[in-house]
């Protein structure tokens, strides 16, 4: 038998697609797919919100607390006062469908959040910085604004979308993502949602006190701090553009003719 020398033929086992073309096709294609899925999911979230009435939401999350929450003692006077303040503010929100619950989280970073079922969490770090009831009232009123627009559920839906997206792009197993409802709710409040919640909060503050003095004092402070050491103020990482928001709040007060000076109510603790 004759042995016929022959060199391996090129182009049989290796596709002649240029690696960069392959990369480009994949990136473009996958981006399109993800954008489509994300839009679809966001749309589904909106539909779900339409079909999940607040009563159902409240019933589902009635007794729910985030797992990683470290609450202060139920006898804490600040908890009592904050709950009272929320109740008084909510009184000015005609037929509010929620029964609001306030919890204080034992955390040094100043933050406040609106969670499913009418749960409002403020951190000790925030309470430490608050110097008057008026300031606190605006922070709480702002969170009430999120409830009115149901931003907290929207954020939940979008948070899930984002987590799925990150999980697949980072190559993780989708089943292995563990995110808490709290994490999800805190992600992705849009600038518009914040402004809208601000407007609502300020209106509540005005209705309650008859003026808006000190409503945004905390924001001015955080805006300054943020300029000096960006990223240190936690509230500004979930609630961006403190400075911007102060301007908008001032505009709103001016437009509505709400007095920006008035009697400051002290804290009762």
């Amino acid at each position: 038998m004759k042995f016929i020398p022959r060199q391996p033929r090129e182009g049989i086992n290796v596709s002649d697609t240029h690696p960069l073309v392959e990369a480009g096709t994949l990136v473009a294609g996958l981006t399109l797919i993800f954008v489509f899925i994300a839009l679809l999911l966001i749309f589904l979230v909106e539909i779900a919100l339409y079909f999940i009435p607040v009563e159902k939401e409240v019933a589902l999350f009635e007794d729910w607390l985030p797992e990683d929450l470290i609450t202060v003692s139920p006898a804490d006077e600040r908890l009592h006062q904050a709950q009272l303040l929320v109740d008084r503010l909510a009184f000015h929100w005609a037929d509010a469908p929620y029964t609001f619950r306030v919890e204080i989280d034992d955390s040094d970073v100043a933050n406040a959040m609106a969670l499913p079922g009418g749960l409002i969490i403020v951190t000790e770090g925030l309470l430490d910085q608050v110097e008057s009831e008026n300031e606190l009232a605006f922070v709480l009123g702002h969170e009430l604004g999120h409830f009115r627009n149901r931003d907290h559920l929207r954020a939940l839906g979008r948070g899930i979308v984002l987590s799925l997206f990150l999980a697949t792009t980072m190559g993780n197993d989708v089943s292995s993502i563990s995110v808490t409802v709290t994490d999800l709710t805190l992600r992705g409040f849009s600038r518009q949602q914040e402004s809208s919640a601000d407007e609502f909060g300020l209106a509540l503050v005005y209705t309650h006190y008859g003026h808006v003095d000190e409503a945004w004092r905390l924001f001015e402070k955080w805006d300054n701090d943020d300029r000096i050491m960006p990223g240190v103020v936690s509230y500004t990482s979930t609630h961006p553009d403190a400075g911007d928001r102060v301007e908008k709040l001032k505009d709103q007060a001016l437009r509505e003719g709400w007095p920006i000076e008035g009697l400051i109510t002290g804290l009762k603790w």
Partner: peptide, 29 residues
Amino acid sequence: YFKRVIAGLRAIVGGRIKTYEPLLERARR
């Protein structure tokens, strides 16, 4: 790293992992 990343993307939708083909071709020969 480049091949690995592209193959990772490919793994999402499936199909021929074209960036690995020359690698194995080199190894065989």
